[in-house]
């Protein structure tokens, strides 16, 4: 547990911090540019706001994937982690948690003021934020699979995006459906279910993929 926390704080302070900051900038840029591109009409903006916020969050999360394993793999730190007492699955979990805390938690919080800027009501903005809190862990967890697969690939970041995109469509669909409108409670439950399912599956898949690379 101590090793888990140490790893988490190391990643949060180091590699994920920059990616998270970049993600926040990206998210804010989308929110500011959206009315300029679409026009300032409040009803139109309010209608597309939840979907746009979710898409921006997904792309921002994908931006941070490259820093999840790559640097540690290149320096050999990942091998040391794999040899430590901490199972590799727990290492993956720590890295997913660090990615989520740095890249997605700030966006879930920011979606409240950003929703208000895009003419959502307070309740709707809070709805988006809650849906993001429960649904976006799936992005980090599925993303870890893509990051593990493209560990030493050429143009790995872009490739990880292509690989993770189909995996992240279900969370995106249920997430933006859960952000208000009819059927939002059942979508919220399904989105949460996807996150929990990803939590059960992704660490094992990612560490299996990482092992094939570390043994070689």
């Amino acid at each position: 547990m101590k090793a888990f926390v140490a790893l988490l704080s190391r990643d949060l302070g180091g590699s994920q911090l920059g990616a998270g900051g970049l993600g926040v900038l990206f998210f804010l840029a989308v929110v500011v540019l959206l009315p300029l591109g679409i026009g300032p009409r409040g009803d139109v903006l309010a209608q597309i706001a939840p979907g746009i916020l979710w898409i921006a969050a997904l792309l921002a999360a994908l931006l941070g994937l490259e820093s999840m394993f790559r640097e540690d793999f290149e320096t050999g730190a990942l091998e040391v982690m794999a040899m430590s007492a901490l199972p590799l699955e727990a290492v993956v979990l720590a890295k997913c948690l660090a990615h989520w805390l740095a890249c997605l938690l700030p966006l879930a919080i920011l979606s409240v003021p950003c929703g208000l800027l895009l003419h959502l009501s307070v309740g709707e903005s809070l709805g988006v934020a809650i849906a993001m809190l429960l649904g976006t862990p799936a992005f980090s967890l599925f993303g870890s699979i893509g990051a593990a697969l493209t560990l030493d690939a050429r143009r790995g970041g872009l490739l990880a995006l292509l690989l993770v995109l189909p995996l992240s469509m279900p969370p995106l669909i249920f997430g933006s459906l859960a952000s208000g409108g009819e059927g939002s409670v059942s979508s919220l439950l399904l989105g949460t279910g996807l996150s929990l399912g990803a939590l059960a599956v992704a660490p094992f898949l990612s560490s299996a993929v990482l092992w094939t690379r570390l043994r070689a």
């Binding site: 697969l149 493209t150 030493d152 050429r154 993929v209 690379r213 070689a216």
Partner: peptide
């Protein structure tokens, strides 16, 4: 994207 065939096959 992966040069080594066996590694590429696993991924």
């Amino acid at each position: 994207a992966i040069e080594e065939p066996t590694l590429a096959a696993r991924a």
